[in-house]
């Protein structure tokens, strides 16, 4: 599918994920969690296709099952007792429900991060860092370059060493790896002297740094960012006033102000599905233009 959201300004991407993931982590409410899960799953599918399902079934689902079991086993609060364990502790309905919602929450967070990693590439992260912590941003971009370079060097050293050893058991492999890491470190540090020289030669640290980037904050970025901020504001207000409130122990109780609940659900849902909506909108626009 057409992924126009990825091409938006990093601010838009970042604040969208920030809002959605923060709410998902902190609001343990069945409907909010379910909305978040649906948003994460659908956006994940549009980004990665069937790969996300593989990730979900192989990695996310086992973790969530563990979490779902873990809760009722260790948490004995709640009024509705279903039966007693052998050690005398009760199994309660509340803890089962809480476990289920937590499992769903965990799944949504993990899935949101999959999309996050896909959308926020190194350029965007360095751009965002560069505003706040310029030196660390430089460190990150340097490391991004050094890692593949060192990995390549390490591999060559390792293979040259491994040639000389006849039987490679795990102990010998670790020995050779350690020696190769050590050798790579020497090489890396000695070369760093030149890199530092090249940075100084090009004026690093001589005056206040500015930032080059290709990201331009366009009108549509402005609109999207406004939507995100608006939804975040509406959600915050309704949450502070009691919307999207859920309590599990000692008994399950949810916020009962219908209007506040609805405004929380809708504003959060809008943010969750914003990337998907935007992609669909762009796709339609493209089709009608042709």
């Amino acid at each position: 599918m057409y992924n126009e959201f990825t091409k938006c300004h990093p601010f838009v991407n970042f604040f969208c994920f920030l809002f959605v993931i923060t709410v998902t982590v902190f609001f343990n409410h069945p409907i909010i969690t379910a909305v978040s899960f649906a948003g994460a799953m659908i956006y994940g599918i549009t980004l990665l296709g069937s790969k996300i399902l593989k990730y979900f079934f192989l990695f996310v689902l086992p973790l969530c099952l563990l979490c779902g079991i873990f809760n009722p086993v260790f948490n004995h609060q709640g009024m509705t007792i279903l039966f007693y364990f052998q050690d005398g502790n009760p199994l309660t309905m509340e803890s089962i429900v809480y476990g289920g919602v937590s499992a769903l929450l965990l799944a949504s967070v993990l899935l949101w991060f999959v999309s996050f990693n896909q959308v926020m590439d190194s350029d965007k992260i360095i751009y965002l860092f560069g505003r706040v912590v310029p030196s660390l941003a430089t460190v990150i971009t340097m490391v991004m370059r050094l890692v593949p370079m060192y990995a390549c060097h390490f591999k060559e050293v390792y293979r040259l060493r491994a040639l000389e050893i006849k039987k490679l058991n795990i102990y010998r492999r670790i020995r050779i790896s350690l020696a190769s890491v050590s050798s790579t470190t020497t090489w890396a540090l000695e070369n760093a002297v030149f890199t530092a020289d090249s940075m100084t030669a090009r004026g690093y640290g001589s005056s206040k740094r500015s930032f080059y980037s290709d990201f331009v904050f366009t009108n549509r970025d402005f609109i999207l960012l406004s939507v995100i901020i608006l939804t975040a504001a509406v959600f915050s207000v309704s949450a502070v006033m009691g919307g999207g409130y859920a309590m599990y122990f000692p008994y399950i109780k949810m916020g009962d102000n219908h209007l506040l609940n609805m405004s929380a659900y809708v504003s959060f849902g809008l943010a969750c599905f914003l990337p998907v909506f935007f992609n669909v909108w762009e796709e339609l626009k493209w089709r009608f233009m042709k």
């Binding site: 490391v143 890692v147 060192y150 760093a192 690093y204 640290g205």
Partner: peptide
């Protein structure tokens, strides 16, 4: 941080990651 500190920091991070 001067270029030298930055590079050494970056090198150590990269070694750890590799």
């Amino acid at each position: 941080p001067r270029a030298r500190e930055i590079t050494v920091t970056a090198v150590m991070i990269a070694i750890g990651v590799v």
